[in-house]
Computed example of a mutant assay.
Amino acid sequence: MKRYYFSAAGVLFSMSISAAELPDRQAQLPSVAKEANAQYLMPSPLSSIPKGEFGDKVRKGYQLFVNSQQMRDTYVGNELNCVNCHMNAGNKANASPLWGAYMAYPAYRKKNDKVNSFEERIQGCFTYSMNGKAPESGSEPLVAISAYSYWLVMSGLMNQFGITGPVPEMTDVELLKGGNREDFPLPETVTSKLDQKELTMLPGRGFPKLAKPELAYSVERGEAVYQAHCQTCHADDGQGYKMANVSALPPLWGPQSYNWGAGMHRVNTAANFIYENMPLGKSIQLTVQQAWDVAAFVNAHERPQDPRYKGNVAETQAKYHQHEGFYGKPSSINGPELLGANAYPIFPVSKQSKQ
Protein backbone atom coordinates (compact mmCIF):
# COMPACT_ATOMS: atom_id res chain seq x y z
CA MET A 1 0.00 0.00 0.00
CA LYS A 2 1.33 3.43 -0.96
CA ARG A 3 0.12 6.69 0.56
CA TYR A 4 0.46 9.97 -1.32
CA TYR A 5 0.07 13.50 -0.01
CA PHE A 6 -0.08 16.43 -2.35
CA SER A 7 -1.44 19.92 -2.53
CA ALA A 8 -3.37 21.40 -5.42
CA ALA A 9 -5.38 24.61 -5.38
CA GLY A 10 -4.53 25.03 -1.73
CA VAL A 11 -6.13 21.77 -0.60
CA LEU A 12 -4.17 18.91 0.96
CA PHE A 13 -5.11 15.49 -0.35
CA SER A 14 -4.34 12.13 1.20
CA MET A 15 -4.58 9.12 -1.09
CA SER A 16 -4.10 5.52 -0.08
CA ILE A 17 -3.36 3.59 -3.24
CA SER A 18 -2.59 -0.09 -3.54
CA ALA A 19 -0.43 -1.50 -6.30
CA ALA A 20 -3.49 -3.26 -7.72
CA GLU A 21 -5.17 0.10 -8.19
CA LEU A 22 -2.29 1.30 -10.34
CA PRO A 23 -1.85 -1.45 -12.93
CA ASP A 24 -1.17 1.07 -15.71
CA ARG A 25 0.88 4.17 -15.04
CA GLN A 26 0.79 5.32 -18.68
CA ALA A 27 -1.46 8.33 -18.14
CA GLN A 28 -3.40 9.49 -21.14
CA LEU A 29 -3.94 13.06 -22.20
CA PRO A 30 -7.12 14.56 -20.71
CA SER A 31 -10.27 14.23 -22.77
CA VAL A 32 -13.56 15.83 -21.87
CA ALA A 33 -16.79 16.40 -23.71
CA LYS A 34 -16.56 19.34 -26.08
CA GLU A 35 -18.60 22.29 -24.90
CA ALA A 36 -20.97 23.96 -27.32
CA ASN A 37 -20.25 27.69 -27.70
CA ALA A 38 -17.20 27.42 -25.45
CA GLN A 39 -15.09 30.57 -25.12
CA TYR A 40 -11.48 29.68 -25.81
CA LEU A 41 -8.49 31.72 -24.70
CA MET A 42 -7.03 33.98 -27.35
CA PRO A 43 -3.36 34.64 -26.49
CA SER A 44 -1.69 37.76 -27.83
CA PRO A 45 0.13 37.67 -31.19
CA LEU A 46 3.80 36.69 -31.18
CA SER A 47 4.70 40.21 -32.28
CA SER A 48 3.70 41.45 -28.83
CA ILE A 49 6.30 39.35 -26.99
CA PRO A 50 8.40 41.97 -25.19
CA LYS A 51 12.03 42.73 -25.78
CA GLY A 52 14.51 41.81 -23.09
CA GLU A 53 15.62 38.67 -21.27
CA PHE A 54 12.14 37.36 -20.44
CA GLY A 55 10.89 37.94 -23.98
CA ASP A 56 13.94 36.16 -25.33
CA LYS A 57 13.01 33.08 -23.30
CA VAL A 58 9.45 33.16 -24.63
CA ARG A 59 10.66 33.48 -28.22
CA LYS A 60 13.15 30.65 -27.70
CA GLY A 61 10.38 28.45 -26.38
CA TYR A 62 8.29 29.14 -29.47
CA GLN A 63 11.23 28.35 -31.75
CA LEU A 64 11.96 25.04 -30.00
CA PHE A 65 8.30 24.10 -30.04
CA VAL A 66 7.74 24.58 -33.76
CA ASN A 67 11.20 23.35 -34.81
CA SER A 68 12.08 20.69 -32.28
CA GLN A 69 14.50 19.14 -34.76
CA GLN A 70 17.13 21.67 -33.71
CA MET A 71 17.35 19.50 -30.56
CA ARG A 72 17.85 16.29 -32.56
CA ASP A 73 20.44 13.95 -31.05
CA THR A 74 20.55 16.11 -27.93
CA TYR A 75 17.03 15.64 -26.61
CA VAL A 76 14.96 14.55 -29.63
CA GLY A 77 15.31 11.06 -31.10
CA ASN A 78 12.77 11.03 -33.94
CA GLU A 79 11.52 13.26 -36.74
CA LEU A 80 8.65 14.85 -34.87
CA ASN A 81 8.18 18.41 -33.69
CA CYS A 82 6.10 19.35 -30.67
CA VAL A 83 3.72 21.23 -32.95
CA ASN A 84 2.73 18.00 -34.73
CA CYS A 85 0.40 17.12 -31.86
CA HIS A 86 -0.04 20.53 -30.19
CA MET A 87 -1.15 22.38 -33.27
CA ASN A 88 -0.87 26.02 -34.30
CA ALA A 89 2.30 26.42 -32.24
CA GLY A 90 0.58 25.02 -29.15
CA ASN A 91 -2.20 27.57 -29.43
CA LYS A 92 -5.07 25.59 -30.98
CA ALA A 93 -8.00 24.77 -28.73
CA ASN A 94 -8.88 21.06 -28.60
CA ALA A 95 -5.37 20.09 -29.72
CA SER A 96 -3.88 19.98 -26.22
CA PRO A 97 -2.84 23.67 -26.24
CA LEU A 98 0.01 24.82 -24.05
CA TRP A 99 -2.16 27.45 -22.42
CA GLY A 100 -4.42 24.72 -21.06
CA ALA A 101 -1.62 22.38 -20.01
CA TYR A 102 0.32 25.04 -18.10
CA MET A 103 -2.56 25.72 -15.72
CA ALA A 104 -3.08 21.99 -15.07
CA TYR A 105 0.32 21.45 -13.42
CA PRO A 106 1.61 20.63 -10.83
CA ALA A 107 -0.60 17.54 -10.89
CA TYR A 108 -0.51 13.94 -9.76
CA ARG A 109 0.19 11.51 -12.63
CA LYS A 110 -0.19 7.74 -12.51
CA LYS A 111 2.53 7.50 -15.13
CA ASN A 112 5.24 7.97 -12.51
CA ASP A 113 3.15 7.89 -9.31
CA LYS A 114 4.03 11.40 -8.16
CA VAL A 115 3.01 15.00 -8.34
CA ASN A 116 4.61 16.38 -11.49
CA SER A 117 5.59 19.96 -12.11
CA PHE A 118 5.11 21.41 -15.57
CA GLU A 119 8.83 20.92 -16.14
CA GLU A 120 8.52 17.21 -15.42
CA ARG A 121 5.56 16.93 -17.76
CA ILE A 122 7.65 18.40 -20.58
CA GLN A 123 10.49 16.02 -19.74
CA GLY A 124 8.06 13.16 -20.22
CA CYS A 125 7.17 14.45 -23.68
CA PHE A 126 10.81 14.30 -24.71
CA THR A 127 11.18 10.75 -23.35
CA TYR A 128 8.06 9.32 -24.96
CA SER A 129 6.54 11.42 -27.74
CA MET A 130 9.91 12.59 -29.04
CA ASN A 131 11.56 9.19 -28.38
CA GLY A 132 14.46 11.14 -26.93
CA LYS A 133 16.15 12.13 -23.73
CA ALA A 134 14.63 14.38 -21.08
CA PRO A 135 16.49 17.71 -20.78
CA GLU A 136 18.14 18.28 -17.42
CA SER A 137 16.05 20.04 -14.77
CA GLY A 138 16.36 23.78 -15.14
CA SER A 139 17.96 23.55 -18.59
CA GLU A 140 17.38 26.15 -21.29
CA PRO A 141 14.84 24.12 -23.33
CA LEU A 142 12.65 23.47 -20.29
CA VAL A 143 12.78 27.08 -19.13
CA ALA A 144 12.08 28.36 -22.64
CA ILE A 145 9.10 26.08 -23.34
CA SER A 146 7.71 26.85 -19.87
CA ALA A 147 8.10 30.58 -20.49
CA TYR A 148 6.31 30.30 -23.82
CA SER A 149 3.50 28.24 -22.26
CA TYR A 150 3.12 30.72 -19.40
CA TRP A 151 3.09 33.68 -21.78
CA LEU A 152 0.33 32.09 -23.87
CA VAL A 153 -1.99 31.46 -20.95
CA MET A 154 -1.32 34.71 -19.12
CA SER A 155 -1.73 36.87 -22.20
CA GLY A 156 -4.89 34.93 -23.04
CA LEU A 157 -6.38 35.47 -19.60
CA MET A 158 -5.46 39.15 -19.66
CA ASN A 159 -7.12 39.52 -23.07
CA GLN A 160 -10.23 37.66 -21.94
CA PHE A 161 -10.74 39.92 -18.93
CA GLY A 162 -9.60 43.19 -20.47
CA ILE A 163 -6.41 43.56 -18.45
CA THR A 164 -3.94 45.90 -20.10
CA GLY A 165 -0.18 46.02 -19.77
CA PRO A 166 2.64 43.53 -20.30
CA VAL A 167 2.52 39.93 -19.13
CA PRO A 168 4.14 39.85 -15.65
CA GLU A 169 7.61 38.34 -15.73
CA MET A 170 8.49 35.30 -13.65
CA THR A 171 11.74 33.70 -12.53
CA ASP A 172 12.95 30.47 -14.11
CA VAL A 173 12.22 28.54 -10.92
CA GLU A 174 8.64 29.76 -10.82
CA LEU A 175 8.07 29.22 -14.54
CA LEU A 176 9.03 25.55 -14.30
CA LYS A 177 6.44 24.78 -11.61
CA GLY A 178 3.28 25.46 -13.63
CA GLY A 179 0.13 27.37 -12.70
CA ASN A 180 -1.88 24.91 -10.60
CA ARG A 181 -0.75 26.13 -7.18
CA GLU A 182 -2.06 28.45 -4.52
CA ASP A 183 0.93 30.79 -4.73
CA PHE A 184 0.73 31.24 -8.50
CA PRO A 185 0.45 34.99 -9.14
CA LEU A 186 -2.71 35.92 -11.03
CA PRO A 187 -4.41 39.30 -11.45
CA GLU A 188 -7.27 39.79 -9.00
CA THR A 189 -9.61 40.35 -11.94
CA VAL A 190 -8.95 36.77 -13.04
CA THR A 191 -9.22 35.12 -9.62
CA SER A 192 -12.50 36.95 -8.96
CA LYS A 193 -13.99 35.27 -12.03
CA LEU A 194 -12.31 31.85 -12.14
CA ASP A 195 -11.32 29.62 -9.24
CA GLN A 196 -8.30 27.34 -9.31
CA LYS A 197 -10.26 24.29 -10.47
CA GLU A 198 -11.77 26.22 -13.38
CA LEU A 199 -8.32 27.42 -14.39
CA THR A 200 -7.06 23.83 -14.57
CA MET A 201 -9.95 22.88 -16.86
CA LEU A 202 -10.00 25.74 -19.36
CA PRO A 203 -12.31 25.05 -22.33
CA GLY A 204 -10.32 23.54 -25.19
CA ARG A 205 -7.74 21.87 -22.97
CA GLY A 206 -6.65 18.42 -24.12
CA PHE A 207 -8.49 16.58 -26.88
CA PRO A 208 -12.32 16.44 -26.94
CA LYS A 209 -13.62 13.06 -25.85
CA LEU A 210 -14.98 11.15 -28.82
CA ALA A 211 -18.03 8.91 -28.60
CA LYS A 212 -17.45 5.17 -28.78
CA PRO A 213 -17.77 3.73 -32.30
CA GLU A 214 -20.84 1.73 -33.23
CA LEU A 215 -18.62 -1.16 -34.30
CA ALA A 216 -15.44 -2.41 -32.67
CA TYR A 217 -12.57 -0.51 -34.30
CA SER A 218 -11.00 -2.32 -37.23
CA VAL A 219 -7.44 -2.16 -38.53
CA GLU A 220 -8.66 -3.33 -41.93
CA ARG A 221 -11.29 -0.60 -42.24
CA GLY A 222 -8.75 1.86 -40.87
CA GLU A 223 -6.37 1.09 -43.71
CA ALA A 224 -9.04 2.12 -46.21
CA VAL A 225 -9.60 5.37 -44.29
CA TYR A 226 -5.86 6.00 -44.26
CA GLN A 227 -5.56 5.52 -47.99
CA ALA A 228 -8.48 7.85 -48.67
CA HIS A 229 -7.71 10.64 -46.20
CA CYS A 230 -4.22 10.40 -44.71
CA GLN A 231 -1.62 9.08 -47.12
CA THR A 232 -1.50 12.34 -49.12
CA CYS A 233 0.31 13.94 -46.17
CA HIS A 234 1.85 10.97 -44.40
CA ALA A 235 2.73 8.80 -47.45
CA ASP A 236 1.50 5.31 -48.20
CA ASP A 237 4.14 3.85 -45.87
CA GLY A 238 3.28 6.22 -43.01
CA GLN A 239 6.71 7.85 -43.01
CA GLY A 240 5.59 11.34 -43.97
CA TYR A 241 7.52 13.69 -46.23
CA LYS A 242 10.71 15.71 -45.98
CA MET A 243 11.71 19.04 -47.47
CA ALA A 244 15.42 19.88 -47.66
CA ASN A 245 16.02 16.71 -45.64
CA VAL A 246 13.86 18.02 -42.79
CA SER A 247 10.61 16.31 -41.86
CA ALA A 248 7.74 18.54 -43.01
CA LEU A 249 4.87 16.09 -42.52
CA PRO A 250 5.50 13.66 -39.68
CA PRO A 251 5.92 9.87 -39.70
CA LEU A 252 3.11 8.06 -37.91
CA TRP A 253 4.87 4.77 -37.21
CA GLY A 254 8.24 3.13 -37.68
CA PRO A 255 11.65 4.15 -36.28
CA GLN A 256 11.14 7.91 -36.57
CA SER A 257 7.76 8.27 -34.85
CA TYR A 258 6.60 8.33 -31.22
CA ASN A 259 7.45 5.32 -29.09
CA TRP A 260 5.34 2.71 -27.32
CA GLY A 261 5.28 4.82 -24.15
CA ALA A 262 3.76 7.93 -25.76
CA GLY A 263 0.14 8.72 -25.02
CA MET A 264 -0.68 8.88 -28.72
CA HIS A 265 -0.09 5.12 -29.11
CA ARG A 266 -3.41 4.59 -27.33
CA VAL A 267 -6.15 4.04 -29.87
CA ASN A 268 -8.65 6.19 -27.97
CA THR A 269 -6.24 9.12 -27.55
CA ALA A 270 -5.30 9.01 -31.23
CA ALA A 271 -8.97 8.79 -32.22
CA ASN A 272 -9.80 11.86 -30.12
CA PHE A 273 -6.98 13.82 -31.74
CA ILE A 274 -7.65 12.64 -35.30
CA TYR A 275 -11.38 13.35 -35.28
CA GLU A 276 -10.93 16.91 -34.05
CA ASN A 277 -7.78 17.89 -35.92
CA MET A 278 -7.30 15.76 -39.03
CA PRO A 279 -6.98 15.87 -41.98
CA LEU A 280 -4.81 18.92 -41.48
CA GLY A 281 -6.74 22.07 -42.31
CA LYS A 282 -9.97 20.09 -42.80
CA SER A 283 -10.76 18.84 -39.30
CA ILE A 284 -13.97 17.07 -38.31
CA GLN A 285 -14.30 15.51 -41.77
CA LEU A 286 -14.19 11.87 -40.68
CA THR A 287 -17.02 10.01 -39.02
CA VAL A 288 -16.60 8.81 -35.45
CA GLN A 289 -16.17 5.26 -36.73
CA GLN A 290 -13.55 6.31 -39.28
CA ALA A 291 -11.54 8.15 -36.62
CA TRP A 292 -11.43 5.08 -34.39
CA ASP A 293 -10.62 2.75 -37.28
CA VAL A 294 -7.75 4.83 -38.66
CA ALA A 295 -6.37 5.37 -35.16
CA ALA A 296 -6.26 1.59 -34.81
CA PHE A 297 -4.55 1.21 -38.18
CA VAL A 298 -1.85 3.75 -37.32
CA ASN A 299 -1.16 2.24 -33.92
CA ALA A 300 -1.15 -1.36 -35.14
CA HIS A 301 2.32 -0.80 -36.62
CA GLU A 302 5.66 -1.31 -34.92
CA ARG A 303 7.40 1.74 -33.47
CA PRO A 304 10.24 2.50 -31.03
CA GLN A 305 10.28 0.52 -27.78
CA ASP A 306 8.63 1.65 -24.55
CA PRO A 307 11.45 3.23 -22.48
CA ARG A 308 10.17 1.32 -19.43
CA TYR A 309 10.83 -2.01 -21.15
CA LYS A 310 13.06 -4.27 -19.05
CA GLY A 311 13.58 -7.11 -21.52
CA ASN A 312 10.16 -8.77 -21.45
CA VAL A 313 7.31 -7.54 -23.66
CA ALA A 314 4.64 -9.47 -21.74
CA GLU A 315 5.72 -7.97 -18.41
CA THR A 316 5.82 -4.46 -19.87
CA GLN A 317 2.41 -4.95 -21.41
CA ALA A 318 0.92 -6.23 -18.16
CA LYS A 319 2.39 -3.42 -16.09
CA TYR A 320 1.93 -0.39 -18.33
CA HIS A 321 -0.44 -1.21 -21.17
CA GLN A 322 -3.79 -2.16 -19.69
CA HIS A 323 -5.66 0.11 -22.09
CA GLU A 324 -6.81 0.42 -25.69
CA GLY A 325 -3.59 -0.27 -27.54
CA PHE A 326 -1.68 -2.93 -29.42
CA TYR A 327 1.57 -3.22 -27.46
CA GLY A 328 2.23 -6.85 -26.57
CA LYS A 329 -0.50 -8.03 -28.94
CA PRO A 330 -0.48 -9.32 -32.52
CA SER A 331 -2.08 -7.27 -35.28
CA SER A 332 -3.26 -8.13 -38.76
CA ILE A 333 -0.45 -5.93 -40.09
CA ASN A 334 2.27 -7.44 -37.93
CA GLY A 335 1.17 -11.06 -38.23
CA PRO A 336 1.53 -13.45 -35.26
CA GLU A 337 4.52 -11.53 -33.82
CA LEU A 338 3.66 -9.47 -30.76
CA LEU A 339 4.02 -5.75 -31.29
CA GLY A 340 6.95 -4.56 -29.21
CA ALA A 341 8.94 -7.73 -29.81
CA ASN A 342 10.76 -6.11 -32.72
CA ALA A 343 10.43 -2.50 -31.64
CA TYR A 344 12.86 0.09 -32.96
CA PRO A 345 15.58 1.66 -30.77
CA ILE A 346 15.00 4.34 -28.18
CA PHE A 347 16.77 7.65 -28.84
CA PRO A 348 18.66 6.56 -31.96
CA VAL A 349 21.39 8.74 -33.46
CA SER A 350 20.29 10.33 -36.73
CA LYS A 351 21.99 9.56 -40.00
CA GLN A 352 23.18 13.17 -40.24
CA SER A 353 25.08 12.81 -36.98
CA LYS A 354 26.76 9.64 -38.21
CA GLN A 355 28.09 11.39 -41.29
Rank of each mutant, 00 (worst) to 15 (best):
D183C: 09
D183W: 06
F184A: 08
F184T: 09
P185Y: 07
L186P: 13
L186D: 11
E188D: 15
T189L: 14
V190A: 10
V190M: 11
V190D: 09
V190Y: 04
T191N: 12
S192I: 08
K193L: 07
K193Q: 15
L194N: 08
L194G: 07
D195P: 14
D195S: 10
Q196I: 12
Q196M: 14
K197E: 12
K197Y: 09
K197V: 14
E198R: 13
E198N: 14
T200A: 08
T200V: 05
L202Q: 06
L202S: 09
P203R: 00
G204K: 06
G204T: 07
G204W: 02
R205C: 05
R205Q: 09
G206I: 01
G206D: 05
K209H: 06
A211W: 03
K212P: 12
K212M: 15
E214A: 14
E214L: 14
E214M: 12
A216L: 13
Y217F: 12
V219A: 09
E220F: 05
E220H: 09
E220I: 11
R221N: 12
R221T: 03
G222Y: 00
E223T: 00
E223V: 00
V225N: 00
V225E: 02
Y226P: 02
Y226T: 01
Q227M: 03
Q227C: 01
A228Q: 13
A228F: 00
C230F: 02
C230I: 01
H234G: 01
A235C: 03
D236A: 12
D237L: 00
D237T: 02
G238Y: 00
Y241D: 07
M243E: 15
M243I: 13
N245K: 14
N245Y: 10
L249N: 14
L249Q: 15
L249R: 15
P250D: 10
P250V: 04
W253G: 05
G254F: 00
P255G: 07
P255H: 06
Q256L: 12
Q256H: 09
Q256M: 12
S257K: 04
Y258T: 05
N259V: 02
W260T: 02
W260D: 10
W260A: 14
W260E: 10
W260F: 10
W260H: 11
G261K: 07
G261L: 04
G261T: 10
G261I: 05
A262G: 07
A262I: 09
A262T: 14
G263T: 08
G263C: 10
R266D: 06
V267Y: 02
V267S: 07
N268S: 12
N268L: 02
